[in-house]
Design a protein around this nucleic acid. Structure first.
Ligand SMILES: [Zn+2]
Ligand SMILES: [Zn+2]
Ligand SMILES: [Zn+2]
Ligand SMILES: [Zn+2]
Lengths: 141, 141
DNA sequence: ATGGCACATGTTATATCGTAACACAAACAC
DNA sequence: GTGTTTGTGTTACGATATAACATGTGCCAT
């Protein structure tokens, strides 16, 4: 009961439930809001959700947004699996929308910096908070 | 009792206490560990610490590390005041050391990306977790 | 087959991080 | 003085995350 090479395939029961909740959500979800969604499926305790999230993050199917204490389903085809890439998130504080990006120039800049500092990153967090283009045009009414 | 144009000058009592605790610490501190440090000075409740931290962050004297839920005194002369620059933190998971950097290449990459996406950032969070050079050489014994 | 192992699960209790709501005091503007 | 802003103090609570312990389930080496 494990393989996971296909997106969403062969997850355990709790992992599937958490994944579905996230995949069905427009924006990021907190662990507790995920729990509320899947209580009806028999999940009762926060720990069950956190454990599933840990695995999903490890698999690269879910990302944690540190500045929100929340989680999103991976939107980026290039994350495919646990390959460590430098991912950036934009988070619109008006509509709550999150966009996930991998940009070569940015990755290069980070890698170069790490080399220069002789710092070995195991994980990078890059989050931009602000206003997305859609909300901006909506405000200019 | 406010001016703050000089580092650390003219902070309120609670702000000074929090600032001193942070300045005297080698690494980042959680709000509650700051509270423990300054209980002896008459600060009793978390809210007093959080309020002081909010102001200190606003002044640019303190930064919040989102991936740690903790705070550090600003190490970077160029942060001088509340000027919004793109700051990056390296966080060593072995020794707990934090380094704060402002790098032009990185700032440019972020700015370019934001322009390209028509995203208007109000705040950026860039944190690299990993192992610092000192801990690496210490491990290669 | 059976005992051992790895891994997922279930459950209770607790730790840690952060804020709402209300009251009061000091500084300042007019 | 009176109103306004800003900092403060206190209680209570909400939100996020983990410790500790017990159970179940598939796998597989002996
Ligand atoms: Zn992704
Ligand atoms: Zn938006
Ligand atoms: Zn700084
Ligand atoms: Zn180190």
């Amino acid at each position: 009961m494990t393989k996971r090479t296909d997106i969403g395939a062969d997850l355990t029961k709790n992992q599937s439930l958490v994944m579905s909740a996230l995949a069905g959500s427009k924006g990021p979800m907190s662990a507790y809001s995920i729990l509320d969604e899947i209580r009806s499926d028999g999940v009762r305790a926060p720990l069950q959700v956190y454990r599933a999230l840990d695995k999903l993050v490890e698999f690269g199917l879910v990302h944690r947004l540190e500045s929100l204490n929340a989680f999103v389903a991976c939107q980026h085809p290039a994350c495919d699996g646990r390959k460590e890439k430098t991912v950036l998130f934009t988070i619109c504080e008006t509509c709550g929308g999150v966009q996930e990006l991998v940009k070569d120039r940015l990755s290069k800049a980070i890698e170069g910096l790490a080399r220069e500092l002789e710092f070995s990153p195991s994980k990078s967090t890059i989050e931009l908070r602000g206003m997305c283009s859609a909300c901006k045009t909506a405000t200019e009414n």
